[in-house]
């Protein structure tokens, strides 16, 4: 078996560009997902009943449908319905956010609910408003507990960006397929890309693990 890594070395800029898109897309979708998740969680916990039902339906739907299907639908089908086209990156961003925000909202909802009701009562006794209690007492405590889970959201986002290759987003996976196809050296190309993804993901999962360990004593009992 002869090994030839030259297509990778020659195209390193191409790969670097792909890696850049991967990182950019991951980070942005992680952030938008968490922010959207926060809004959804708050609306579910404190909003009107009917809205809560709708949001529960949305969250459960995203648990049932693969991200691949969501991405493909937004990129190919939505334009036919609405008459607007999304460039691949933005379609991916919307799709990833839609899918991951559901997961993030569950994390946040569980985090907020894990704060003992006594804390709320103490705030009320001091004369604080509900909004103040949320901002100053509940969210700060909940955020610390949720930090490791947010790290998981980031790893999820990074892995899911690779799926965006099916809608031609020029991230790392897509670039790998292009070079593999042109150079007829799929083994070398995909092995290299494997190493690259590992190098990106490993530090993040390590940090998440350490955070889980350090914050374990704060978890719900």
């Amino acid at each position: 078996m002869d090994v030839d890594f030259s297509p990778i070395i020659e195209n390193w800029r191409f790969f670097a560009g792909g890696l850049g898109v991967t990182v950019l897309l991951s980070v942005i979708s992680a952030v938008t997902s968490i922010l959207s998740g926060l809004v959804i969680a708050l609306l579910r916990l404190y909003g009107p009943r009917w809205l809560s039902t709708v949001l529960v339906f949305y969250v459960d739907t995203m648990r049932a449908i693969p991200i691949l299907v969501v991405l493909v639908w937004i990129y190919f089908a939505f334009p036919l319905l609405a008459g607007v086209t999304f460039p691949p990156f933005w379609a991916a961003l919307v799709g990833l956010t839609l899918h991951i925000a559901a997961y993030a909202s569950e994390i946040i909802r569980a985090g907020i609910e894990s704060i003992r009701p006594g804390q709320t009562r103490a705030g009320l006794a001091l004369g604080m408003s509900r909004a103040q209690i949320l901002r100053k007492i509940i969210l700060p405590q909940a955020t610390i507990r949720m930090l490791p889970a947010f790290g998981s959201v980031l790893t999820m986002a990074i892995k899911d960006t690779a799926i965006a290759t099916v809608i031609a987003v020029p991230e790392l996976m897509h670039r790998a397929e292009t070079v593999a196809g042109q150079s007829y050296r799929p083994v070398e190309v995909f092995t290299t890309v494997m190493v690259l993804y590992f190098l990106v993901l490993f530090p993040v999962t390590r940090i998440v693990d350490r955070m889980y360990q350090k914050l374990a004593h704060l978890g719900r009992s």
């Binding site: 892995k159 790998a176 590992f198 993901l201």
Partner: peptide, 9 residues
């Protein structure tokens, strides 16, 4: 630490 789609390929 790897995306599944990459593992499949």
């Amino acid at each position: 630490n790897l995306p599944l789609i990459l593992v499949i390929y």
